[in-house]
Design a protein around this nucleic acid. Structure first.
Length: 447
RNA sequence: GUGGUUGUAGCUCAGUUGGUUAGAGCGCUGGAUUGUGGUUCCAGAGGUCGCGGGUUCAAAUCCCGUCUUCCACCCCA
């Protein structure tokens, strides 16, 4: 049979994985420096944990895991007879693959509430699965790098996330725009436009503004039966030059005013802190996930045209559905797959990422190979990343291997070298060679 | 989920109105060079033309189905 992998999934070669780990490493380091602790959760969750958390669209994109054993005999007979797949699913699949890391985290917090000390800051870097139709930069299996802080409603955390975002992208050498907004400001606009009860629909339409313009947004709102009067209000309020001019508009909107106050407070925390990236308040930023209730974040590249490369926000009651009320949390998630593509396109990966070996030893005859194998241990023990070609092959072949695996130095060991205990160290970049003892080699390569 | 697009050697791609033994470049293996890689020259290996079916004397080429790729929606990272 011909080997293949499921659509929307990928193999990662050493070259790709070194690059991915470079990104993960930077994010992990920053998370840990900001006091986040790692956790992992299972690939599978109970389907009941996942369904209903991502909206109707999200439910369709959940991967379901077929029950084991004689699952058909326990299937819902009515749904089976009607061939109603949607209705049949719960009775034949009680588990599903996680769709994101936030909902499993909420489940984790509720399950382990007695062992946790709040506020609890955790980070989690694991793959998630979505039965989406794949495209470039869009897969059925992809990684998320989440950090969430739960159990405090302090806006200090929001400010902290902005610092985290700033540090990660600056370390990666990328220019980005950090957009923030508040669901409360959106609620305020909905209120003063007389569409309080339809805020979700309004924000979903406005979220597309950058793509389809006001003409498109108006068309979409009209299609959703908003009145032209309401639409005029919405357009006017979302078009304000400065967020602060919403203050007067929000005179009678408590929630809108709160939103503005919160954004001000976040800026207050950041006063005197030098950000390397651009931070803007964008009132048209909405974000799809409907569990967000407060501040929301999004990051886009200023150099490459692509969708958002980070998302996040505050949710007041994520754990409520699992029976634990009053837990406010705030979190972000880096879109590593897209960040990878951007770094690749801009050629911003450091060029020594695949140099994971300091020294490759080349032996020229069986006797030298034995000596080399002993030396190998010595070099490894002294902390050098060292390897030995597994057989005393032709030097040309071994050199070629060294060249292709991207090792920085080779060590030539033949009868001459063994006799004197002085080996030939070759710098593969410059081609320079020098004769050194084992101790000198360690010293040279460690500097 | 809707509409479209793609698939030929390890990789990037040619392949005429359907016509004999399916090609190139790069890469790979070996040699020129028995202790020196990234340059050059020579030789060689490598293909069920995504998969299944159909039309035809004849299919990489036309038709249908299916899988996959990418694109626009939907939604999203």
């Amino acid at each position: 049979m011909k080997p293949s992998i499921p659509k929307g999934t990928r193999d990662f070669s050493p070259v790709e994985l070194h690059k991915r780990q470079y990104i993960f490493g930077i994010i992990r380091d920053v998370y840990e420096r900001f006091g986040f602790h790692p956790i992992e959760t299972p690939v599978m969750e109970n389907l009941s944990t996942l369904t209903g958390k991502y909206g109707e669209e999200g439910d369709k994109l959940l991967f379901k895991v077929l029950n084991n054993g004689d699952f058909l005999s326990k299937a819902d007979p009515e749904a089976l007879a009607e061939k109603d797949s949607q209705a049949l699913a719960p009775s034949i699949a009680r588990r599903g693959l996680r769709y994101d890391l936030t909902v499993p985290f909420a489940r984790y917090v509720v399950m382990h509430q007695n062992d946790l000390t709040f506020p609890f800051k955790r980070y989690q870097i694991q793959p998630v699965w979505r039965a989406d139709r794949p495209q470039k930069g869009r897969y059925q299996e992809f990684y998320q790098c989440d950090a969430d802080a739960i159990g405090s409603d302090s806006l200090m955390y929001e400010a902290e996330y902005i610092q985290i975002i700033d540090e990660v992208f600056s370390t990666l050498g990328l220019k980005v725009e950090v957009k923030i907004n508040s669901r409360k400001i959106l609620a305020g606009i909905a209120e003063v436009s007389g569409v309080s009860d339809r805020m979700m629909e309004m924000t979903m339409a406005v979220d597309k503004l950058w793509k389809i313009g006001w003409e498109g947004v108006r068309r979409e709102l009209l299609a959703r039966d908003f009145t032209t009067d309401q639409i005029d209000h919405i357009q006017r309020y979302f078009s304000v030059e400065d967020v602060q001019s919403l203050r007067t508009i929000f005179a009678d909107s408590e929630i809108g005013t709160t939103g503005l106050d919160e954004v001000d407070e976040i800026h207050g925390y950041l006063e005197g802190y030098e950000l390397s990236q651009e931070l803007v308040v964008d009132v048209t930023l909405a974000r799809g996930l409907n569990y967000y209730t407060g501040c929301i974040f999004e990051v886009v590249s200023k150099e490459v045209k692509m969708g958002s490369i980070l998302g996040g926000g505050r949710y007041d009651d994520l754990t409520g559905v699992f029976g634990m009320a009053g837990m406010s949390g705030v979190g972000i998630s880096f879109g590593v797959e897209r960040i990878f593509d951007i770094l690749e396109e801009l050629k911003r990966f450091p060029d020594d990422l695949d140099q994971t070996l300091d020294l490759l030893m080349l032996a020229l005859d069986p006797e030298s190979h034995k000596v080399a194998f002993k030396l190998l241990t010595e070099f490894r023990d002294s902390g050098l990343r060292t390897d030995l070609y597994p057989e005393p092959a032709k030097m040309k072949k071994q050199m070629k291997y060294a060249n292709q695996t991207g090792v920085s130095h080779t060590l030539i060991i033949g009868s001459e070298e063994v006799e004197k205990g002085i080996y030939t160290l070759k710098n593969m970049k410059t081609g320079d060679q020098q004769k050194l003892s084992a101790a000198q080699i360690v010293e040279t390569l460690q500097s």
